[in-house]
Every structure is written in structure tokens, then in C-alpha cells.
Amino acid sequence: MTDTTHPSKDKLVSDLKVVVSDAEELLKLTAGQAGDKLGDVRVRLSERLAIAKERLIEAEAAVVEKTKKAAHATDDYVHAHPWQSVGVAAGVAFLLGLLAGRR
């Protein structure tokens, strides 16, 4: 999996949290409404919200786990190749300095 997918996963998790929150609020607002069809919809929505919450927790845990693995891999590489890491950091800092100097 590429690094560019991590921000989109984070955004997806954030968006899903908002949707779940909105759906829960909708359930609370329609609690006083009567009707068999509305009751059936509320039950199905409640079940699907529970499933969505579980999947959201799993997705968030997966993102955190992958982030930790990437951090550990980076730490291991820096410890194994300190001078190469310093060179890369210096190169990145130089490029950022050039870009910042142009503004």
C-alpha cells in the first residue's frame, strides 16, 4: 500500500464518524414518531449503525497499526544507516529552503 492512501483512509474514517454521528442524531430526533414502517427503518438503521461503528473502529486500528509499522521501519533504517539519513535530511532541508526562498 502506498503512502498516498493513508491521508485518504484518515479522511474516510473522519467522514464515517460524521455520518455515524448524524445518523445517531436522526434516530434520536425521530424517536417520538409513530408508525410501523418508521419503526422498521429505525431498527434497520440502528443495526447498520452498530456494524458501521465496528468497521470504523477496525479501520482506525488498521491505520494506526500501519502508521506504527512505518515509524518503526523508519527508525530502524535511521539507526542502521545514520549518515545516509543525515544526507537525505540535509537534501530535503536544502530543497525546502530553496522553495521557501523563492516566495
Rank of each mutant, 00 (worst) to 15 (best):
T2A: 13
D3E: 13
T5L: 12
T5S: 14
H6E: 14
P7Y: 09
S8A: 14
L12F: 13
L12C: 06
L12D: 13
V13E: 07
V13R: 10
S14P: 01
S14H: 07
L16V: 12
L16E: 12
L16R: 11
L16G: 08
V18T: 11
V19L: 06
V19W: 04
V19S: 05
V20Q: 03
S21C: 07
E24P: 02
E24M: 06
E25K: 15
E25D: 11
E25V: 07
L26C: 10
L27M: 06
L27W: 00
K28S: 12
K28F: 05
T30W: 02
Q33E: 12
A34P: 00
A34L: 10
G35D: 09
G35E: 07
K37D: 15
K37H: 14
K37A: 15
L38D: 07
G39V: 02
D40K: 08
V41S: 06
R42M: 03
L45G: 15
L45T: 15
L45Q: 15
L45A: 15
S46Q: 15
E47P: 03
E47G: 11
E47I: 08
R48Q: 13
A50K: 13
A50F: 08
A50V: 10
I51A: 12
I51W: 09
I51H: 09
I51P: 00
A52V: 14
A52E: 10
A52W: 09
A52Q: 11
K53E: 04
E54A: 14
E54F: 07
E54Q: 14
E54P: 05
E54N: 12
R55F: 05
L56G: 09
L56D: 06
L56N: 04
I57Q: 10
I57H: 09
A59G: 08
A62G: 10
A62K: 07
V63F: 09
V63Y: 08
V63G: 01
V64Y: 08
E65D: 11
E65Y: 11
E65P: 00
K66R: 13
K68D: 14
K68T: 13
K69H: 15
K69C: 12
A70H: 14
A71R: 03
H72Q: 14
A73L: 03
A73H: 05
A73Y: 10
T74H: 09
D76C: 01
D76Y: 03
D76E: 08
Y77N: 04
Y77L: 13
Y77W: 13
V78R: 14
V78A: 11
A80T: 10
A80F: 09
A80W: 06
H81V: 06
P82Q: 05
W83Y: 14
W83Q: 15
Q84I: 08
Q84Y: 06
V86T: 04
G87N: 12
G87M: 07
A89W: 01
A90G: 01
G91M: 01
G91H: 04
V92P: 00
A93G: 02
F94M: 01
L96N: 03
G97D: 00
L98I: 00
L98Y: 01
G101D: 00
R102E: 05
R103A: 02
